[in-house]
Simulated scan of single mutants.
Amino acid sequence: MPFLVFGLLLWVGAHIFKRVAPAQRDGLGASGKAIIAVLITAGLILIILGYRDSPFITVWTPPAFMVHINNLLMLIAVFVYGMSATTGRLRGKLRHPQLTAVKIWAVAHLLVNGDLASILLFGTMLGWAVSEVILINRAGPWERPAPGPAKKDIVLVVITLVMFGVITGIHTWLGVSPFPG
């Protein structure tokens, strides 16, 4: 589990650095972005390797029906994440669509994973997303973008369904079927 913990520390630290130390981050210039990107990537790799290699230590046993709630929340999370890129009517409805999607994703996975490594991973990601939103909101006001055409929202729905299919396919391929058999 040390790789998982170290990866989470790298991920959170690299992401929050520019929020808690903006002057130092700005002082790094363009090369600072590359350093942060490398730290985030290294963190992600360590998270994946650490999570895969962590022992399964049961903390609680989720009820079977939580799988359905997880799947619904994941569909919503994919849609909300996509709102960050939409140019449709939904544009600007949420200030932090990507971070909101991470929060939904984390809660959904906490509902169906009762082992220590999962609680550590998804709980940390939930805490990070909440912290980021608080830090960003404290940094200043938000200028809401103007909404675009409704047809772009239909495209978002189609992309959401396709991406949800891809994500569930990858989970199934990895041996973690998101659908009860």
Rank of each mutant, 00 (worst) to 15 (best):
M83Q: 00
L135H: 11
L9T: 02
A42G: 15
G181Q: 06
L121E: 13
S31P: 00
G114A: 12
P147F: 06
L116D: 09
I48W: 05
H15C: 01
L90K: 02
L28E: 07
A30E: 15
H68G: 08
T61F: 03
L4C: 08
R52A: 14
G169Q: 06
S54T: 06
T61D: 10
T160K: 00
A85C: 08
V5H: 00
P141L: 13
T41K: 01
L28R: 12
V102C: 12
F79S: 00
L135P: 11
Q24I: 11
A34N: 09
F179W: 15
N70A: 11
V157A: 06
A139R: 15
W105H: 03
V176S: 12
T124H: 05
V5Q: 11
L120Y: 04
L39C: 14
R138V: 10
T87V: 09
F17L: 03
I159C: 00
P149H: 14
P141T: 15
I159F: 02
K152E: 15
L110F: 02
G43M: 07
V155K: 06
L72I: 14
S118Q: 07
M125H: 01
K93Y: 10
R138T: 10
L49T: 01
P149N: 06
V80T: 02
V78T: 11
S118W: 03
W60I: 05
L49S: 11
R89G: 00
W142E: 01
N71L: 15
K152G: 03
A150Y: 09
L8R: 03
K18D: 01
W128S: 12
R89A: 09
A117V: 11
A37C: 08
L10G: 04
I35S: 06
H96N: 14
Q24V: 12
K103E: 13
I57L: 14
A77I: 11
I170F: 09
R95P: 00
T168Y: 05
T87H: 14
W173R: 06
V59W: 09
V176L: 05
I136R: 10
I40D: 11
V158S: 01
I47Y: 05
P97I: 00
G165H: 07
P147R: 08
M163C: 09
T87Q: 15
I35A: 13
V166Y: 09
V20G: 03
L90N: 03
L72S: 14
T87P: 06
A37N: 13
G175P: 02
V12K: 05
L94S: 02
